[in-house]
Amino acid sequence: MSTPHVIVVMGVAGTGKTTIGPLVAAALGVPYAEGDDFHPPANIAKMSAGVPLDDADRGPWLDALGAWAHGRDGRGGVVSSSALKRAYRDRLRAAAPGIVFLHLTGDRALIEARMTGRTGHFMPTALLDSQFATLEPLGADEAGVAVDVSGTPEQIADRAVAALHHLEPVA
């Protein structure tokens, strides 16, 4: 990657999007936006109650993320978003075609352990299975990289930045 892109740090809950995103943004010298901050209050209430969001719930959230990414076009930025389905990523790309995805991946047991150990987050571990069931990994025609979340946050961010620098443009 030679020009500033908006990078969407994606993955199931507990992969470290909120931890890794700011580290990647700092390494690239671009701003970071927390994707959860774009959720309407009704979505947060639903997830806090252990109810998975449906596509209708996610629409306004994805549109808000897409608008932020569009506003950063040519200047770069990093934003976190689960972006679990191809249709969600397509919606984000429709708003900001230059988006690049950083898919944080990992072993379910590791992710669940990390979720169990965190405090102050509205997403319960009970929704992890629904997240994995919904996840559609990046397609070969989607601009992005997948990075394993084992190791320290700094190690993960270093691997992510290196992978992003070696990302080939998608035709």
Rank of each mutant, 00 (worst) to 15 (best):
R72F: 02
D54V: 08
H39R: 02
H121E: 04
A69Y: 07
G35P: 08
L128T: 07
K46G: 05
A56T: 14
N43H: 02
D37H: 09
R58W: 09
V30R: 15
D63L: 13
H103R: 12
T125M: 13
L84D: 01
A83M: 07
M115C: 09
E112R: 15
S82L: 00
R72H: 14
G35E: 04
P52K: 12
D129H: 00
R89W: 05
F132Y: 13
V100D: 05
I20D: 06
R118K: 10
G29K: 12
V78Q: 05
P52Q: 12
W68E: 10
H39N: 02
L102M: 14
D36S: 12
A67I: 01
D36P: 09
I99W: 02
P22A: 10
P137F: 11
P41G: 11
A49L: 12
H39V: 00
S48C: 06
S80V: 03
V100I: 14
V30D: 14
L127T: 02
R72E: 09
D90P: 01
S80F: 03
P31V: 09
G98L: 03
A33F: 10
T18K: 00
D90K: 08
G74K: 06
V79I: 15
I44H: 00
G77C: 01
S81H: 01
G76D: 08
L127I: 04
D54E: 13
P137H: 09
L135E: 01
F132T: 02
S82Y: 00
I111Q: 08
R118C: 10
P41R: 04
T134A: 10
T119P: 00
D73R: 15
A33C: 04
E112L: 15
A56G: 14
M47E: 04
F101G: 08
V24R: 13
G21N: 06
R89H: 06
E112K: 14
F122S: 09
S48I: 01
G76C: 08
L128K: 05
A69Q: 02
A25T: 07
F38Q: 03
D36Y: 05
K17F: 08
Y88R: 14
G35Y: 07
Q131D: 03
S82A: 15
G29R: 13
W61Q: 01
L128F: 02
G71I: 06
L62N: 04
Y88F: 14
E136N: 05
T105L: 08
A87I: 10
I44R: 14
I99D: 07
H70A: 15
I44E: 07
G29C: 04
E112Q: 15
A49P: 10
G98I: 01
A94F: 01
M47S: 05
A69R: 01
A27C: 13
S130C: 11
V24M: 14
